[in-house]
Write a protein that binds this DNA or RNA. Structure first.
Lengths: 406, 406
DNA sequence: CGCACTTTAATACACAACGTAAGAAAGTGG
DNA sequence: CCACTTTCTTACGTTGTGTATTAAAGTGCG
């Protein structure tokens, strides 16, 4: 490894060392010296400070090697906590995590549905305050609140993505400012894909050296990129819009104005629409009566596919095949070695998506000869985005390596 | 801007300041202080050293502002030189540039064609030695040799891309090691797209803050990415393979095993193939007789398209439209604000490609509301790759910010 | 059980690079 | 020509790292 840190500021060095400890699980000072490139003397100083801050703890002795046994160092997960909120159409999820990304408390309430943003955010603020009060964490250990949503940065702050059965729209709304009025903690707002990515990075203890992407599937698709241990945000923080990659120049028209976009071919709405076109399947699924919601209809199809229903399997495999093409393009473009599938869209039939994308990428990618590209389903479950939002707070507060805080 | 550099090593600071001077053209010490975040005292120290090294020069006085007039600082282009070589099937190009990326001397010879790599590289070594001897530059000012080629990193070093009229193949060959045996300068080998990107960055004086991509079109397509003033290389230095992005899931089969790849739809070979299918056009273009080469046939079509020939225009526009779809996907994915088209493929009809891609991206990209995405043709001309290879040397030697040297 | 040896951790001091503060230098403009 | 402004430099203090040395804590063999 041998990073060279000569000349960095205290904060940078501390966060880099903390990051090594985080991603290693358990390490000795000697390990840290080797892997950071710093000398034992410097490590000694930094570790002393981190111990004093309570950010790490000594947890025993290393294996005997013929001399003094090394003291084992570990992240002290309970030293700090963060709140993560995932705001989505069908549901809102709140989590409080410790520093290792483990969930301490979790609450769900209904989503924003068709509520006006102001109403929805007001309610969320109240629920958030309740949660902070109710949760039994030392108030001073709560370092911030992260918010994940399907939105984008734009004129006048962030814009919420509003999904209707028939149309999509962005509504500009200053989520962050509204929350700040009542919540007295740092607040970070980020789109759900990026949150999911940083969540994997943090909770999955992925080393800073790895470059990887997380595909987040909810109503549509998004991609979060983590490179060099930091979120890649691009020139206006709108990286990762993969829903409108062109996959079929002769395909169906998309609401975005384009043709043959991934979203219009493979998103939940597209799958449900195809199911509706098969009369017997539509009836069997109960799609004929009053529409509940695209998202729950899709979940039903995915669940049946996972259980082996041939017609549903075919539909999901079709969706997965389109996604695989998109991910193949992205792998070739960015030379990734790890892709993680996260979000509610994969919770029922993630296995099918993993299987098909893995096969496609390892059959056709240009880097397959150098290194395999692993595709895995997120282990964080359906609350990946909320957990990621909390991780983003941890990340930006604890390892502000360079430009993490935007 | 306000970069914070506190605690950096001398080399990092010097290169950061040098980079500011490079991208600014002419600056005062006060400007540098403001834009770097360092104090005047530190700038004074760094500038003194850079002046002593001859890397920059004082070139007069700034405008009067009521006090002492500031001394203007400028890059001293002639302080150092670099050699760049572009190795391609139809031709090999050698350039010697000064530090500003201006070409001092330029030579072309025949390409590697179907020569065995060992033979070709031997010849290139000899030609390179001649050039260095012939060129009237202070030997000590020559800081290295950069090599641009269509290749990829793989087992056993870099692999040359060999283009045949009918098939493609990579031949592993240790270009760098072979050159090092005879040439007594640092040698950097990189793929042509990345070289083109760093060339634009350096010679085009693009500030380190800008993220942009360069599309390089020769036999196929490649993308070079520069983010945060440094080349983005990905996990195994094989970033930018856009030739096999899937654009048409029902399209033609590609030699790579995929379906509907950009390369098989829009590369020179695809355009020439379409021209051949129109008997009268094929005859008019002289494609009927003995095949010269796909690349020169494509150049002929592009030239006629630029001159207004309707049938050729249609062919080039079709190619440009496919490329536009791919670039649209990439812009959405990476949130780019600048794309540059470079390489021999654009030298005849670049305007058509610029027009069509600009229109498409600004009509459909998701970031268009935040910022326009400019598409421009490279101003570096047909030797963009060679010039970029030289720039890569300058970049890696003069502004080794962080991990530039791999 | 004790003592030589090994490995880990901490301390003391030197060096590098930046910031602060003070002042010298160079020019402006009434 | 002289008070004033702006630029640039110099001297010194702070921070953080490396080197060298020492202290501490075990191991394992006789």
């Amino acid at each position: 490894m041998a990073k060279i840190l000569k000349g960095a500021t205290a904060q940078e060095t501390h966060s880099a060392i903390l990051d090594l400890i985080r991603s290693s699980g358990t390490v000795t000072r000697v390990d840290l010296a080797e892997r950071s490139g710093l000398t034992g003397a410097s490590i000694s100083r930094v570790v002393k400070q981190l111990l004093a801050d309570g950010l790490i703890i000594e947890t025993g002795l290393g294996d005997p090697t013929g001399g003094k046994r090394a003291t084992l160092l570990q992240f002290n997960p309970r030293a700090r906590h963060a709140v993560g909120i995932s705001i989505d159409t069908p549901s809102t999820t709140y989590v409080i995590t410790d520093m290792s990304g483990r969930v301490i408390e979790q609450v769900s309430s209904r989503g924003i549905g068709r509520d006006a943003p102001a109403t929805a955010v007001k309610r969320i603020t109240a629920e958030l305050e309740d949660l902070i009060v109710k949760a039994d964490v030392e108030p001073s250990s709560l370092i911030g609140v992260g918010v994940a949503l399907a939105g984008r940065q734009g004129g006048g702050g962030l814009r919420l993505l509003r999904t209707d059965p028939e149309k999509y729209a962005w509504e500009p709304f200053a989520v962050r400012d509204t929350l700040m009025e009542t919540i007295d903690h740092p607040i970070v707002v980020e789109n759900d894909s990026t949150c999911a990515a940083i969540g994997e990075f943090w909770a999955g203890r992925i080393p800073s050296a790895n470059d990887f992407a997380t595909v987040y599937m909810a109503a549509g698709f998004g991609l979060g990129l983590v490179t060099n241990g930091d979120v890649y945000r691009g020139s206006s923080s709108n990286v990762g819009e993969i829903g409108h990659m062109v996959l079929d120049v002769n395909g169906p028209e998309c609401w975005c104005g384009g043709i043959g976009c991934l979203e219009s071919l493979a998103a939940p709405a597209a799958v449900v629409k195809r199911a509706e076109q098969d009369p017997s399947l539509a009836t069997a699924l109960g799609l004929r009566g009053r529409r509940t919601s695209v998202r729950s209809d899709f979940a039903k199809i995915a669940r049946l596919a996972a259980a082996g229903d041939p017609r549903c399997t075919e539909l999901i495999e079709e969706s997965a095949t389109y996604l695989a093409k998109a991910l193949l393009s992205i792998t070739n473009l960015l030379d990734l070695d790890q892709i993680i599938l996260a979000g509610p869209g994969f919770s029922e039939a993630g296995d099918i998506y993993v299987r098909i994308t893995t096969t496609e990428i390892n059959r056709l990618s240009f880097v397959r000869a150098m290194h395999p590209t692993r595709v895995e389903q997120s282990k964080l479950g359906p609350s990946a985005a909320a957990l990621g939002a909390a991780s983003l707070v941890l990340h930006s507060q604890l390892t502000p390596h360079q430009k993490s805080g935007r």
